[in-house]
């Protein structure tokens, strides 16, 4: 994140768009606050705090946007300069898939493939290390939790684990 260069106002300025996102969130919070009722001063309602926090959020977001217009800021591209964005992207995709699989399949059936994918896809570890690690780490933790601490990890529809 190098801020030395101050380019003229550009639409792909990342500061600008995070600020816009901030305003959008702020407006949403204000609306939720209004919907939940502000109440009165001697009995403030559920939306009281949300409403004012929403206002503050908009104010801070506007400050960020103003700064981005006057001072410029790093572009989206420069944020990822020299970084291989594919790897975190792949992890996010794998974890999302895992999130869907965890409940129906259970901890062991879903976590062993997860570990294997993480070990092999992102920055490959050799198979002879990846497989034992992917199997032993989840099974080991599962066993310790189940026997030692009596914590039942999700067993899923096949009731394995």
């Amino acid at each position: 994140m190098t801020d030395q260069t101050r380019p003229p106002f550009r639409l792909n300025n990342s500061e600008l768009w995070t600020g816009v996102l901030g305003i959008a969130l702020g407006v949403f919070v204000i609306r939720s606050g209004l919907k939940l009722k502000l109440g009165t001063i001697n009995d403030p309602g559920s939306g009281f705090m949300l409403f004012y926090i929403g206002l503050l959020m908009c104010a801070f977001a506007v400050t960020i946007i103003l700064a981005s217009v006057t001072e410029g800021g790093p572009t989206f591209g420069s944020r990822w300069e020299g970084a291989s964005w594919g790897k975190p992207g792949a992890i996010i995709v794998i974890l999302s898939a895992y999130a869907f699989a965890l409940e129906p399949l259970g901890f062991l059936i879903s976590t062993i493939p997860l570990m294997l994918l993480l070990l092999r896809v992102i920055d490959p570890v050799r198979w002879t290390l990846a497989i034992p690690l992917a199997v032993l780490a989840p099974v080991g933790v599962w066993w310790v939790l189940k026997r030692g601490l009596l914590i039942q990890l999700p067993s899923g529809m096949f009731e394995i684990g």
């Binding site: 976590t111 997860l114 070990l119 992102i122 992917a134 933790v141 939790l145 914590i151 999700p154």
Partner: peptide
């Protein structure tokens, strides 16, 4: 790090699950 980070992820998943016994928290 390529061996360490899957383990870190594993332990965050387990830690989160054990704190509430809820998959939703994962």
């Amino acid at each position: 790090y390529n061996v360490l980070f899957p383990l870190i992820i594993l332990f965050t998943i387990i830690g989160v699950y054990c704190s509430s016994n809820n998959v939703f928290d994962v």
